[in-house]
Design a binder for these strands. Structure first.
Lengths: 342, 342
DNA sequence: AGAAGTGCCCAAAGCGCTTTGGATACCAAA
DNA sequence: TTTGGTATCCAAAGCGCTTTGGGCACTTCT
């Protein structure tokens, strides 16, 4: 059923039917009702491609999902981010189109979005330091929102981010207050902007107390479970093992915990752990009692906010907006004062 | 830059330019080269919406991602599934469009895909027993591939699935061979087809040995970490605790392990655990030595295969195909013979 | 009574592409 | 020389929608 057929069926022009359905005022309420009823009855919905062609709006938002060529890994937070964003899209009649792309093909993917005219805006995931994408997108001229930031970007751009620096600063202070001095940072890949900020926060808190970070206790890699395990295992085998771990992801923290327990130690008593918690739906931090002390910020909420910001930019032609979300420091069982040893 | 502009620039007709770019033979190699060069130089790519309107093919595949209204959970395997499928799509010039939808809005989402004409085919996720979607989609008339099966479907449909029954049958036998008799099944939601099959496999293996499943040892829910933990915790507190757990997801298995260790027990020695491993990229089963004994099957591979099947069906108008993938039983450190007690 | 709205509807152009059905030129075959 | 074939190109229709620019019949105002 297309517009033409529907209009013939109703003995009306396509114009009128189209207007009736799209809520234009130049049509009487009586016929509007009639048209809507008929559309409903015959299951008519405008062909999006035709409509898009006519209006110039694609009514869809593009996400470029990078797949790490190293671990063939797709960041697990995407699922939740997308759930948050997707909800907003569908509420506003937008579709979400995903382009899964390995590290190298990224630029082409963004250009393709523009050239093929298949989206009205783009969400940029996982910005890196010196990320060329924000310049690229400004040049391309498609509205976009970055989930995260690119600290050294020269141009204005819209972003939604968690205050990573502050979060890890507070977490570090918290550990320091508990008496910890040898704190390991099990960070994400430090080509990623968020990881750099977390490290800065970590270092800033140490500096505040006149301490400086022990490079041997800092590691950086893709945040798998195995990475957490192997790193913690190695660090705990040192002559002067860390008494606390600051971990960049819940999944990695699982691995850290595994290493701790393999050594017969107890997390929260012998070794403290604070992790960042994205509130992934399948990984809620414990049940009633939280397992991990964590810097918490819902990535799903970030997805929702990013989508809203982008749609707002598209509809109101507004310039780049910025939104900084604060992470909560939530107490769990994974932290405690240092044991008596020195 | 659009076709018209490009053709004027080349002093050719739109027809010729279009044909040159699309590889039709009615154009000399010389002009084809010239056209391709110009297209490249000016960054021309055909507008997908216009092309789709003209050809009737949307060049994109729809995925409906259900979000559990209960846990607001989006299944973590989607990310990897989509990574696998997405690669295949982009290699074939297809886009992937996602529709995130809560349990109730599903039917509308599929209908919308058809009516709006925005996709050429659909991948159906997480089929349930008595899933109305396969009938719906057959009625709608869009090619589709189900990731999983709906055991009681009355009509033919295309699917890609893991042999869940067989996998859990083997896993159960393996535990039985190790001497385990009180085996707990920590299953996924048994409205899901895969969970039902796994349970059948579990029960079949028990029946083979003249045993029958103890209902008290069987649980079923959405596969979060907390669910694994709480369930195992409760079961292990029984007067006759299970000596082994058969778990439906790696994430849930993490929770089971946590419960085991909280009680001062050691997984693999005091309590055995087998889990299903989807080979999620960020959750590779241990490093060199596998942590869990597992029934393993890559969900990413399943995504790839599903996408290939769907594209094949679309291009060659072939009827529904079927693909059953076998899961490997991989040995890890999480299983061992029963302890001496009874 | 005539002018000026106003409410309701329509014909047709146009979005950017593909594809049908020629047109033209050239060459080999009859 | 005529015919038929082949290689190369083009004009125009059409995909299904929105939107411009009226048209027509009533009211309402002067």
């Amino acid at each position: 059923m297309n517009l033409k057929q529907l209009s013939e069926l109703l003995h009306l022009s396509q114009t009128t039917v189209s207007r009736a359905l799209n809520g234009y005022p130049e049509v009487s309420e009586a016929t509007r009702k009639r048209v809507q009823a008929a559309a409903q009855a015959h299951g008519y919905a405008p062909n999006m491609r035709a409509r898009s062609l006519a209006t110039g709006r694609a009514m869809s938002i593009g996400h470029v999902i990078p797949v790490s060529s190293k671990h063939e890994m797709v960041n697990p937070v995407f699922a939740d981010f997308i759930a948050g964003a997707g909800e907003t899209y569908s509420r506003n009649g937008y579709d979400m189109v995903l382009s899964v792309v390995s590290d190298d093909g990224e630029e082409a993917a963004y250009r393709a979005f523009k050239m093929k005219g298949s989206v009205d805006g783009i969400i940029v995931h996982a910005p890196r330091l010196g990320d060329p994408r924000i310049h690229l997108l400004n040049e391309i001229g498609l509205p976009f929102v970055v989930h995260g930031r690119a600290s050294d970007a020269q141009e204005p751009y819209a972003w939604v981010d968690v205050n990573n620096t502050h979060a890890f600063e507070r977490a570090t202070r918290f550990l320091l207050d508990l008496g910890h001095r040898r704190i390991a940072l099990v960070n994400g890949l430090e080509t990623m902007d968020f990881a750099i900020r977390r490290r800065h926060g970590f270092e800033a808190a140490l500096a505040e107390r006149g301490l400086s970070a022990d490079l041997a206790l800092i590691s950086s890699d893709e945040m798998t479970e195995a990475y957490g395990h192997d790193t913690a295992r190695a660090l705990l085998a040192r002559p002067d093992p860390p008494t606390a771990f600051l971990v960049s992801s819940m999944i990695t923290a699982i691995g850290v915990r595994r290493a701790i327990e393999e050594l017969g130690l107890v997390m929260g008593r012998d070794v403290s752990v604070i992790t960042h918690d994205d509130e992934l739906s399948y990984f809620r931090n414990g049940g009633d009692t939280r397992l991990y002390t964590a810097t918490r910020s819902s990535v799903r909420e970030a997805g929702k906010r990013s989508a809203e910001m982008l749609l707002d930019m598209i509809h109101n032609q507004t310039g780049p907006q910025e939104l900084l979300l604060e992470a909560e420091l939530t107490l769990g069982q994974s932290t405690g004062p240092t044991s008596k040893e020195t």
